[in-house]
């Protein structure tokens, strides 16, 4: 099975602090990490290769330093990676991003399965996975919480829904997006780390993937951010309640009634 895992480098929120004034997270100066959902995508791809053979190729689009995230994926079992990096890709929205990734998947060739994390934790859109499937005209399954079965030409997955789950079979090629429940990502081995340091990460430009320049970057993006503003302010004064448990419960009920919640 030839599997492509699409990954994204995102700002690490682990060491973020909260602004005491606005009570919101300070995002400036955060280091870059592999998008958490993508770690599950990489692990699932590696597990499928271990069971069925084949190859796991990691694909990312971003600045040159995103190669570090590709190396991280190789350190936990991916075979190789490709980075799409060029000024012309800059400013791509989810439409243009999924177009570029789909073109790269075609260029890689003979791909059976594409696995993505459900969403990236910076943009939070969950649109790129289905977008890739649409550009390739492949079947898709999103919010996948388990791979129940797989063979050379099909995969059976369990999809999470608001009111339960379902199990469906997709003939390959297909695109799946995965949630955290699907597996526990492994820790890199020493051998994996060495492999990840040695590996060459080829950088592909728009011409390498036959991209129509009017479909990538800012020009190829149907949506455009026209302005940004701070979010509506939170009530920054915390109302403190303490006392016996009964007093606390009473005080809280009063607060809820005051706000017409009860």
């Amino acid at each position: 099975m030839k599997i492509v895992v699409c990954i994204k480098q995102v700002p690490a929120t682990n060491d973020a602090k909260i602004d005491p004034e606005t009570k919101r997270i300070i995002r400036e100066g955060l280091k870059a990490i592999l998008n958490p959902f993508d770690t599950y995508a990489v692990e699932e791809a590696v597990q499928l290769r271990e069971r069925f053979g084949g190859e796991v190729i990691v694909l990312s689009m971003g600045p040159e330093k995103a190669a570090l995230s590709i190396r991280e994926a190789v350190s936990v079992g991916a075979d190789r990676g490709v980075l799409l990096s060029d000024r012309a890709f800059g400013g791509s929205d989810t439409w243009a991003t999924s177009y570029a990734l789909a073109n790269a998947i075609r260029k890689i060739g003979d791909v059976d399965l594409v696995i993505c994390g459900k969403q990236a934790v910076d943009g939070d859109t969950a649109q790129v996975g289905p977008g890739i499937a649409a550009h390739l005209d492949w079947k898709q399954a999103t919010y996948v919480m388990a791979v129940e079965d797989a063979s050379d030409d099909s995969i059976v997955v369990k999809r999470m829904h608001e009111d339960g789950y379902d199990i469906c079979e997709l003939k390959l090629p297909a695109v799946v997006t995965v949630v955290k429940d699907i597996n526990t990502p492994r820790i890199p081995t020493l051998r994996g780390r060495l492999a990840s340091e040695k590996i060459e990460v080829p950088v592909w430009k728009p011409a390498d993937i036959g991209a129509d320049l009017s479909k990538i970057g800012l020009d190829g993006s149907p949506t455009r951010v026209v302005r940004t503003a701070p979010p509506p302010p939170r009530n920054t004064v915390t109302k403190k309640i303490s006392g016996t448990s009964a007093e606390c419960a009473d005080a809280l009920i009063k607060e809820l009634r005051l706000r017409s919640i009860l």
């Binding site: 969950a126 289905p130 898709q140």
Partner: peptide, 23 residues
């Protein structure tokens, strides 16, 4: 923006060549 909507609409947006904003 449900599990279904977030799967269906990005696909439709690509096929109809139109822009989509999430959430």
């Amino acid at each position: 923006a449900t599990t279904r909507g977030r799967a269906l609409i990005p696909r439709v947006a690509v096929v109809t060549d139109s822009g989509l904003t999430a959430d």
